[in-house]
């Protein structure tokens, strides 16, 4: 176990390094003077010089990269060009709405999708299966923002059950938070549910064809026990994997959903920074989201050892 653990953690380092190089080069490879792009058409030479200096654009490329990395490793993600605040502070201000919505979404998705997938596999080729698969393909195909607007139209405009947009922190007014969070979470969950339900079904169908399931039946076990005790745990690894890789979809979805529902989270911060060409913020946000993605998948990798005794190193 410790060896496996160390190996997985070490394997994450080159991935993050590639991300860092890519993010770093993204700005440097842009045609034209990055400083001019950032400052816009109206910038004075003095402003340009200030930006170059802030970004260290006057040093050789590798020196720039190393000093940038060095600062990041010390937790210094630079300063926003627009608000002049440290990037860390901006992120701290905006991260809670995103974290709350994401947590609700993941919980909701797993609670809804896994039973859906199990049911579909168990009742393979019946109407139950067909309904689940139809929901799943719809979830894949209808873009997040279209689902968002459909839900707003239905529940906020027509039925008036919830407010159209906005966000409240759960600490202050939990009811207000919940009623505003439910639509964004459902919106975000749609594709995640589709993904997890589909993988649960596929993985379970595979496992139900395995010899040991036949053995379990030959032992005279009840179907329910065959399903839950023998099949489900064996089917879990691919489902965990897809929860991890689906996290990337979730991050992309957050950006869109926060725009649709006007939630002041990291997604909005990202879009705003990109349009304002606030480079240090963009770099930090891509690094941060990639880091979270890698960390989540690392945790999931490590959880395999709990699910499958064969995975030990």
């Amino acid at each position: 176990m410790p060896v496996y653990f160390v190996r997985r953690v070490l394997a994450a380092i080159p991935v993050m390094l590639v991300v860092a190089v890519f993010v770093f080069l993204l700005l440097r490879l842009t045609p034209g003077d990055p400083a001019a792009i950032i400052a816009g058409d109206m910038a004075t030479p003095a402003q340009l010089e200030r930006i170059r200096d802030t970004l260290g654009l006057n040093d050789p490329l590798h020196v720039q990269f190393l000093s940038w990395m060095g600062r990041i490793l010390q937790g210094d993600f630079g300063t926003s060009l627009i608000s002049n605040k440290p990037v860390i502070e901006l992120v701290e201000d905006r991260m809670w709405p995103t974290i709350w919505i994401a947590l609700i979404t993941i919980t909701l998705s797993v609670i809804i999708a896994v039973p859906m997938g199990v049911l579909a596999a168990w009742r393979h080729r019946t109407w139950v299966d067909h309904i689940v698969m139809t929901f799943s393909v719809l979830g894949f195909s209808i873009p997040v923002f279209v689902i968002g607007y459909l839900l707003i139209k239905l529940f906020a405009i027509d039925l008036r059950w919830v407010p159209v947009q906005g966000y409240k922190a759960p600490s202050g007014d939990f009811g207000g938070f919940a009623i505003r969070a439910v639509l964004p979470a459902l919106t975000l969950a749609s594709i995640y549910i589709a993904l997890i339900a589909r993988m649960t079904r596929a993985s379970l169908l595979d496992v139900l064809n395995e010899d040991y399931v036949r053995t379990a039946r030959a032992k005279g076990l009840a179907e329910r026990r065959v399903l839950f005790r023998h099949a489900l745990r064996n089917a879990a690894v691919p489902v965990m994997t897809v929860i991890g890789t689906g996290f990337a979809l979730l991050i992309s979805g957050v950006v869109v959903t926060e725009s649709v529902f006007n939630i002041p989270g990291l997604g909005r911060l990202t879009v705003d920074s990109i349009f304002a060409r606030d480079y240090p913020v963009i770099q930090a946000l891509i690094l941060l989201t990639s880091g979270i993605y890698v960390a989540v998948n690392l945790l999931i990798d490590l959880s395999y050892t709990l699910l499958d005794p064969r995975i030990r190193y």
Partner: peptide, 13 residues
């Protein structure tokens, strides 16, 4: 590394 970066973010950038 490419997979780790959220595709929409990367594309907008």
């Amino acid at each position: 590394g490419l997979m780790a970066m959220p595709s929409v973010l990367l594309a907008i950038a």
